[in-house]
């Protein structure tokens, strides 16, 4: 059966086929360049001198000014390490809270029968729509009144309730969680929390990995809430620090600005290229469901 269906393309490999392939690859390579070029310009300009950038802002040949730019950049009151650490704390904490508790909530919806289960899920579907921005004023006033401004925790705890993640995990779980295994574990006398932590969680790993990456990225990139809630320079996250690169104290030295941008991005590049396997694999594994 499968043989007949795979015979077809072989016979179809005419000029049209190769033309199609060529178009496909040219287009894909064009997209790849489009995705990479701004970063390439950024990194190269980080090594060029101010006058080089002023005369020709685009170049594929790195300059020799990296050290000078570094010195200029370092002379500004811009502490990359602090920002990076704060961002790591917030993003890791928020990702853990969001993924662990969302999976738990989804588990409650999928694995148990309870009276308000359907209304609760409908409720989650509804609040999925409420974006944090529109409630930010109340959020700020509330955080201010309980003294939580300038606390990184204020950006972590709210992640426990992540309706979008719950929604995604429920969709995944509904297809991929075999109730029979849970039942047999129950018969073996396992408690419900053990069932969740030791049986359900490991089975959800692929979906959790995907969600973790998305949660991490969105938390890492979040500018709006930190901008509102954090005023202490020691607590600034990366995006706030980056946003200050636009200011006039840095404007004079474009090489240093590019270097600053590069520094904020480099760790992300490294983490991303290490994790990208898991993203692709996570997506592929996600496909086994339903």
């Amino acid at each position: 059966m499968s043989k007949t269906s795979y015979d077809e393309p072989k016979s179809a490999k005419g000029p049209a086929y190769y033309g199609y392939k060529a178009f496909q690859y040219i287009f894909l390579i064009f997209l790849a360049i489009m995705s990479l070029l701004p970063f390439v310009i950024m990194i190269i300009n980080a090594t060029r001198s101010r006058s080089q950038i002023e005369s020709h802002a685009i170049s594929l040949i790195p300059g020799k000014n990296l050290l000078v730019n570094w010195k200029v950049f370092n002379g500004k009151s811009f502490n990359v390490t602090t920002g990076f650490l704060n961002s790591v704390i917030v993003s890791t904490g928020a990702t853990f809270c969001s993924v662990y508790f969302s999976t738990m909530t989804a588990f409650a919806i999928v694995a148990y029968d309870w009276k308000f289960k359907k209304p609760f899920f409908t409720f989650i579907m509804c609040v999925l729509m409420i974006p944090p921005q529109v409630t930010s004023i109340g959020m700020y006033q509330f955080m201010y009144s309980i003294g939580m401004t300038n606390k990184l925790l204020a950006l972590i705890i709210p992640a426990v309730a992540a309706p979008a993640t719950v929604f995604f995990m429920r969709q995944y779980m509904a297809g991929a969680l075999p109730m029979e295994i849970l039942q047999s574990a129950r018969i073996d006398g396992a408690g419900e929390f053990r069932i969740y932590n030791q049986i359900a969680l490991p089975m959800m790993k692929p979906a959790m990995a995907t969600q973790a990456i998305f949660a991490f990225v969105s938390s890492w990139n979040n500018l709006f809430l930190p901008l509102i809630l954090l005023t202490d320079k020691k607590k600034f996250t990366m995006p706030i620090m980056v946003s200050q690169l636009n200011g006039d104290i840095y404007k004079t030295e474009y090489g240093a600005v590019y270097l600053g941008l590069t520094l904020t991005v480099l760790p992300l590049f490294v983490i991303y290229f290490l994790l990208s396997k898991y993203i692709i694999a996570g997506v592929a594994l996600g496909g086994v469901k339903e």
Partner: peptide, 19 residues
């Protein structure tokens, strides 16, 4: 402990006010 925020884009005032 200094906090230097440029006035470009009006960023300084809101930050200072909150602080």
């Amino acid at each position: 402990k200094e906090s230097v925020i440029a006035t470009t884009d009006g960023a300084y005032q809101p930050a200072l006010d909150a602080a």
